[in-house]
Nucleic acid binder design. Structure first.
Lengths: 113, 113
DNA sequence: AGACATACTACACCTGTCGTAGTACGTTTG
DNA sequence: CAAACGTACTACGACAGGTGTAGTATGTCT
């Protein structure tokens, strides 16, 4: 089975995470499951990659965290949720534009078939 | 001007170089000029990135080097030329396949427009 | 009760890229 | 003829993102 190299995805992990947070705030485990689902099981983000992305993106103010329980009553496990900021949205949109450019460049060097 | 992030290109620099060597053996300066031309000036590979790619790929046996002058008579500056190996060709083709997969995955997370 | 799923944190390592710097030869130009 | 510019590299250290490994702790299912 062909594996997606981390060097290729590098630089787009943040973008994937942000695209999920664009819909609604979420947390680690749920985001990792969504990435797997959306990519049809083709890409599974490593736990450490994910959590270190949170740290980095919170430092860069692309996301904000808050702790909450899984239900309203405050029962159940507490989790750290993340919410995208305006700065994060801007970053995401820029990355999307950059992607178009990058894709076109790389494809000039890829054999067509 | 939108810049292509090196984190995205990372992992495809080798592929770009190999795609040029697929046509004929070449050397550093010439390859860097070709990458610029082929990408319509949108991507310029850094010298250090290029030469360290040569070292790595020669170690991996994707390319072989030989020293030659610019003309037949042995005059002019000597340069180190690189030639793609069969292993290098295989690597290149695999990367092309991987690219299709990766592109599809990333595009699921990119806003369409 | 034990297994399994969830929800993390810590830490050290690896790899590719990049900035900076320096060398040296060849060619063009004032 | 000298200086500037283009060509053709090498060395080296820094950095960032990703990864393996490990460990902790709580909740849920059987």
């Amino acid at each position: 089975m062909l594996e997606i190299s981390s060097d290729v995805i590098r630089g787009y992990n943040d973008t994937m995470i942000l695209s999920i947070l664009l819909k609604e705030p979420s947390y680690g485990y749920e985001i990792s499951k969504q990435i797997k689902t959306i990519s049809d099981g083709k890409y599974v983000i490593k736990e450490t990659t994910l959590y270190s992305a949170f740290t980095r993106m919170e430092k860069n103010e692309y996301i904000e965290s808050f702790v909450a329980s899984q239900d309203m009553s405050g029962n159940g496990k507490k989790r750290t949720y993340y919410r995208i900021t305006d700065k994060g949205k801007e970053y995401y949109h820029n990355k999307c534009e950059e992607w178009e450019l990058t894709k076109d460049v790389i494809e000039k060097f890829i054999e067509s078939n």
